[in-house]
Design a protein around this nucleic acid. Structure first.
Length: 531
RNA sequence: GGUGCUAUCGUCUAGUGGCCUAGGACAACGGCCUCUCACGCCGUAAACCCCGGUUCGAGUCCGGGUAGCACUACCA
């Protein structure tokens, strides 16, 4: 009988959630949803020294923003920023599971799969300095200070004296350990290269990752462990641990994901790369209370969550065809571990921008206006209605990748130009332009308020639909009659209204500005522009 | 150093022995559209790491090199 699919995302609260971690969470989520299974979230806070306040909240908020839903464990309460724990395999923070781990440490000690070691970190450092490639393993363990070399009563006495100790896993030598990986196939490692990993440290009464991970995955009935490739080398150790516990029958399947690499040069993507190359490496902006640093986030940079999801999904996974745009639902349907690449993927930020552009265009003008409103209001006291803002946004949305970029595209709709772009003037403002503008002013003055906004659908010579404005019928014949040249007049006009040679179609601008404001801007420009 | 993983355009990738004259997308470049800047559309350039082997036939399978990455903590 197939067992129920249960996967987990198990981050450490040591800072903001790295974008690679987000992808791991996403793949776990997709896998769970596809198989109708459960997605758990567990916090691995067994290193008390690296804990960063706020990190746990950050991780949950980031997943919530991206729509990566959690079925069991810790998650953000719907519509709030409160953390709730759901499920009956808790607690879901490892620091709250001390008693559970005690029991399993004891089991390993009793069965002879582990032993107690008193060597201090300083002693081990000295040993490493003294002996090249020193490793705490079958060859060296009998020369060290541990329960294998010390008499039992001495061990007892040391513990009672409060001497700090660790529990180490006793790796049997000369054994080929097989790990089956869903992405890479069979991986074989000889146990001789494994060291006697520390499983538990009495100093903080906490297990290390390896022990806590195996115990929790077992107790939480995890069926598939989907994690980053950096864990592949320790997978054999984990297999050995399952075996030592006698849990081999229910051992989860493993899938080790390729790493996200630096866009340039070599190595895995790090926070520094983001700073250096100017893009976020974290989903949300993060204020690290521990070291005072602020890291930028995708959300604050104007990314849409669906774009981040799509972008990340394709960094290491690809469907069967040429499709690149995938909604979350499509990903859930199409995703499969055997289509995950084996090699690391260089992080291509440019592609991410393109995805955001695509998803932005899919949104209605009203939705975009909604997102843009806060940015607009931070720049100017907005006098226009939401419907007007939506109309404006609709004119320029296809030329931006991000909502915040909208401001520089539309600012002239809200603020009359006070200065005029030098390059545009040089190229587009001619000797005759003041004269043209004077005449245009007079001409436009004759247009009624109603006619000003009039237009009808028409077709150009290629049969494409265009808007034909009443103002076209007024201005074009006048230009033709005097042989002024359409480009010369219109560009000068544009500079008066926008302040530069850019922006949407001119009659769209005059329509939104209105007759009064348009004429006013031309008059102002005539006063201000001197060649 | 040791161990493991990986290897197709600049980047993400398609490709599971003949459909490959190696496909798509991003980026680049060129053109079209046009009152401007963009968008869009059309097009161009661009890759099977190397050497052997298996086979009638290899990007695809095998071996060896090489390179990149990861791991090698009382971190995860």
């Amino acid at each position: 009988m197939e067992r129920r699919v249960r996967v987990r995302f198990a981050p450490s609260p040591t800072g903001a959630l790295h974008i690679g971690g987000v992808r791991t969470a996403l793949y776990n989520y997709l896998f769970a949803r596809q198989h109708g299974g459960d997605m758990l979230l567990r916090i691995e806070d067994t290193d008390s020294t690296r804990f960063v306040p706020g990190a746990e909240e950050y991780i949950l908020e980031a997943l919530d923003w991206l729509g990566i839903g959690i079925d069991e464990g810790l998650r953000m309460k719907k519509g709030t920023k409160e953390i709730e724990a759901v499920g009956n395999h808790g607690p879901y923070r490892q620091s709250e599971r001390r008693e559970i781990y005690h029991q399993y440490v004891k089991q390993l000690l009793d069965s002879g799969h582990a032993y107690i070691a008193f060597d201090t970190p300083e002693e081990l450092d000295a040993k490493r300095a003294e002996i090249p490639n020193f490793q705490y393993d079958a060859r060296s363990r009998m020369q060290m200070r541990n329960s294998l070399t010390l008499p039992a009563d001495e061990v007892q006495r040391l513990i009672e004296n409060g001497e700090k100790y660790v529990v180490r896993f006793k790796v049997e030598p000369d054994e080929d350990v097989h790990v089956h990986d869903l992405i890479r196939g069979e991986v074989v490692i000889n146990s001789n290269i494994l060291d006697d990993k520390v499983l538990y440290k009495s100093a903080d009464d906490l297990p290390t990752y390896h022990l806590a991970n195996i115990v929790d995955d077992h107790l939480m009935e995890i069926s598939h462990v989907i994690r980053g490739e950096e864990w592949l080398p320790s997978a054999p150790l984990h297999v050995l641990l399952y075996r030592a516990f006698g849990w081999e029958e229910t051992m989860p399947e493993f899938a080790h994901l390729p790493l996200l690499l630096k866009p340039d040069g070599n190595g895995k993507l790090s926070k520094r790369d983001g700073d250096r190359l100017g893009f976020p490496v974290f989903p949300l902006e993060f204020h690290n209370q521990k070291d005072g640093t602020i890291s930028s986030g995708y959300r604050e940079s104007g990314y849409l969550p669906e774009a981040v999801i799509n972008f990340l999904a394709l960094l290491g996974w690809h469907g069967t065809g040429d499709q690149e745009m995938y909604s979350m639902d499509e990903l859930i349907k199409e995703f499969s571990l055997d289509r995950v690449s084996k090699s690391g993927a260089k992080f291509d930020y440019e592609k991410g921008k393109w995805f955001n552009h695509q998803y932005l265009q899919l949104k209605s003008d009203e939705e975009i206006a909604e997102l843009f409103m806060p940015i607009l209001e931070s720049n100017v006291k907005c006098q226009k209605s939401k419907a007007e803002v939506a109309k404006i946004v609709g004119l320029v949305k296809d030329r931006v990748n991000f909502v915040p970029e909208l401001w520089e595209q539309v600012n002239f709709f809200f603020v009359a130009p006070t200065e005029y772009d030098e390059k545009s003037l040089k190229k587009r403002w001619k000797e005759d332009s003041p004269k043209h503008m004077q005449e245009l002013l007079a001409l436009l003055g004759t247009v009624s308020e109603e006619e000003w906004h009039l237009y009808h659908e028409d077709k150009n010579e290629n049969g494409e639909n265009i808007m034909r404005w009443h103002l076209d019928d007024v201005v074009m014949p006048w230009i033709a009659e005097h042989e002024y040249g359409v480009g010369i007049v219109m560009n000068a006009f544009r500079i008066c209204l926008v302040g530069a040679a850019r922006g949407p179609h001119i009659w769209n601008i005059t329509d939104i500005l209105g007759k009064e404001e348009t004429l006013c801007r031309v008059r102002t420009a005539l006063e201000k522009i001197q060649l």
